[in-house]
Deep mutational scan, measured.
Amino acid sequence: MEVRTIKVFTTVDNINLHTQVVDMSMTYGQQFGPTYLDGADVTKIKPHNSHEGKTFYVLPNDDTLRVEAFEYYHTTDPSFLGRYMSALNHTKKWKYPQVNGLTSIKWADNNCYLATALLTLQQIELKFNPPALQDAYYRARAGEAANFCALILAYCNKTVGELGDVRETMSYLFQHANLDSCKRVLNVVCKTCGQQQTTLKGVEAVMYMGTLSYEQFKKGVQIPCTCGKQATKYLVQQESPFVMMSAPPAQYELKHGTFTCASEYTGNYQCGHYKHITSKETLYCIDGALLTKSSEYKGPITDVFYKENSYTTTIK
């Protein structure tokens, strides 16, 4: 009895394709271990004539594949690729409408935090270190965002349907971005203890939790000093293409032309909904596939993004 075979390709990165001759009487799992086709788990399936010449994702289970996976995804987590594939199996079914010149995501599976993050990423200057993220990001900007969303979920250790947080998501993504040249110098002034300067680099240099107003941050924000008295913390120097200011959701007025974009969060910790506000020729609110415009805006804002380049204080 002759062994019926077909020729397929296996890959971990969709760049390096490895030619395989597979036995049609055995499952993919018996031949390769966990195997995925377009995100779908085909591990328990036997090869079919229609699979001839198709590319299958496999887990990096030998040295060659491990090197290829690390170079593309910059992670050695053995569960990463499987999590990416199972997320992709959902995100490829989502709709990605162009809204006001940006790629958004039609609401499904509690994905409003991903839509808000995706919209924000198209408006701030950011370059990702893992080629996987950078490639998928370019495709997302062009309207094909399924891979990018699935990668975000995998890097953030999230599953489809789980509630997510924009600030946490951005923080994970910033860790995989090139923020080497970003720098922030802060000064804390206390009447009792004097003053202390701190220099922050990388992710810490672009994120701040405690106030939404970048102007206020430049002037000074009140913080408790270690001595128990009130101290003032203010920005001395900022070198970065953008800054992200966050605070627990509270009524906040966004003035046209003073910011790049913002995240609105309605609801409580267990259950809520994100919308995205962007400042173009007027203010726009993007909620999944829905767009509304207004000249002014007041609502429960939790993150505001500002364009920056270089700032030095005039406070002496």
Rank of each mutant, 00 (worst) to 15 (best):
residue 223 I to M: 09
residue 163 L to E: 13
residue 105 I to P: 01
residue 105 I to S: 02
residue 104 S to W: 01
residue 56 F to V: 09
residue 241 P to D: 09
residue 155 Y to H: 02
residue 75 T to L: 06
residue 254 L to K: 02
residue 129 N to Q: 07
residue 277 I to R: 00
residue 270 Q to G: 14
residue 172 Y to N: 15
residue 296 E to F: 14
residue 230 Q to K: 12
residue 270 Q to I: 07
residue 64 T to V: 13
residue 103 T to F: 09
residue 241 P to G: 10
residue 297 Y to T: 01
residue 89 N to H: 12
residue 6 I to L: 14
residue 242 F to G: 04
residue 151 L to S: 06
residue 106 K to H: 11
residue 202 G to D: 01
residue 158 K to E: 03
residue 302 T to W: 04
residue 50 S to D: 13
residue 205 A to K: 03
residue 43 T to P: 06
residue 41 D to I: 11
residue 113 Y to V: 02
residue 169 T to G: 04
residue 114 L to A: 06
residue 43 T to D: 09
residue 77 D to Y: 05
residue 167 R to I: 02
residue 204 E to L: 07
residue 73 Y to C: 03
residue 145 A to V: 01
residue 217 F to Q: 01
residue 249 P to I: 02
residue 117 A to Y: 03
residue 253 E to H: 10
residue 310 S to D: 14
residue 236 V to L: 08
residue 128 F to W: 14
residue 221 V to C: 09
residue 70 F to V: 10
residue 59 L to G: 08
residue 302 T to F: 00
residue 165 D to C: 15
residue 21 V to S: 13
residue 39 G to F: 10
residue 254 L to F: 00
residue 36 Y to R: 05
residue 131 P to M: 05
residue 37 L to I: 11
residue 132 A to T: 04
residue 98 Q to V: 14
residue 40 A to C: 13
residue 139 R to W: 10
residue 17 L to I: 00
residue 225 C to I: 02
residue 264 E to D: 05
residue 108 A to N: 06
residue 23 D to E: 13
residue 172 Y to W: 10
residue 189 V to C: 11
residue 10 T to H: 07
residue 204 E to I: 00
residue 164 G to F: 00
residue 313 T to D: 15
residue 149 C to T: 09
residue 243 V to Y: 03
residue 226 T to W: 06
residue 116 T to D: 06
residue 199 T to L: 07
residue 109 D to K: 05
residue 92 K to C: 07
residue 140 A to D: 04
residue 138 Y to M: 14
residue 140 A to H: 05
residue 72 Y to S: 09
residue 170 M to I: 09
residue 84 Y to K: 05
residue 311 Y to P: 14
residue 215 E to S: 09
residue 20 Q to G: 10
residue 252 Y to K: 04
residue 113 Y to T: 05
residue 161 G to C: 04
residue 9 F to Q: 12
residue 92 K to R: 13
residue 58 V to L: 09
residue 298 K to M: 12
residue 302 T to E: 00
residue 282 T to A: 13
residue 26 M to T: 06
residue 43 T to K: 10
residue 119 L to F: 01
residue 159 T to E: 15
residue 292 T to N: 11
residue 237 Q to L: 13
residue 86 S to P: 06
residue 272 G to E: 02
residue 21 V to I: 13
residue 49 N to Y: 14
residue 279 S to L: 01
residue 20 Q to N: 09
residue 216 Q to P: 00
residue 99 V to M: 15
residue 136 A to Y: 09
residue 60 P to K: 00
residue 283 L to N: 00
residue 131 P to I: 03
residue 150 A to Y: 01
residue 31 Q to H: 11
residue 89 N to E: 15
residue 41 D to C: 13
residue 174 F to W: 01
residue 20 Q to A: 13
residue 275 K to C: 10
residue 184 R to N: 03
residue 221 V to P: 01
residue 22 V to F: 06
residue 273 H to V: 02
residue 103 T to S: 04
residue 145 A to S: 03
residue 184 R to P: 01
residue 290 L to A: 13
residue 289 A to C: 10
residue 172 Y to R: 12
residue 140 A to E: 07
residue 244 M to Y: 00
residue 12 V to P: 07
residue 45 I to N: 15
residue 122 Q to Y: 04
residue 291 L to I: 13
residue 140 A to K: 06
residue 122 Q to V: 03
residue 94 W to V: 01
residue 18 H to P: 07
residue 163 L to S: 11
residue 43 T to Q: 14
residue 152 I to G: 02
residue 79 S to G: 13
residue 310 S to A: 12
residue 213 S to T: 02
residue 152 I to P: 00
residue 105 I to L: 06
residue 20 Q to V: 14
residue 93 K to V: 10
residue 241 P to Y: 00
residue 167 R to N: 05
residue 181 S to F: 09
residue 295 S to L: 13
residue 220 G to P: 12
residue 75 T to C: 09
residue 85 M to F: 14
residue 170 M to G: 02
residue 179 L to F: 06
residue 273 H to N: 02
residue 81 L to C: 09
residue 217 F to W: 06
residue 312 T to G: 09
residue 106 K to Y: 09
residue 56 F to A: 06
residue 292 T to Q: 11
residue 224 P to W: 12
residue 199 T to R: 08
residue 221 V to L: 14
residue 286 I to F: 11
residue 248 P to A: 09
residue 223 I to R: 03
residue 79 S to P: 00
residue 75 T to Q: 09
residue 209 M to E: 10
residue 31 Q to D: 07
residue 154 A to K: 00
residue 132 A to F: 05
residue 65 L to K: 10
residue 121 L to I: 12
residue 256 H to K: 13
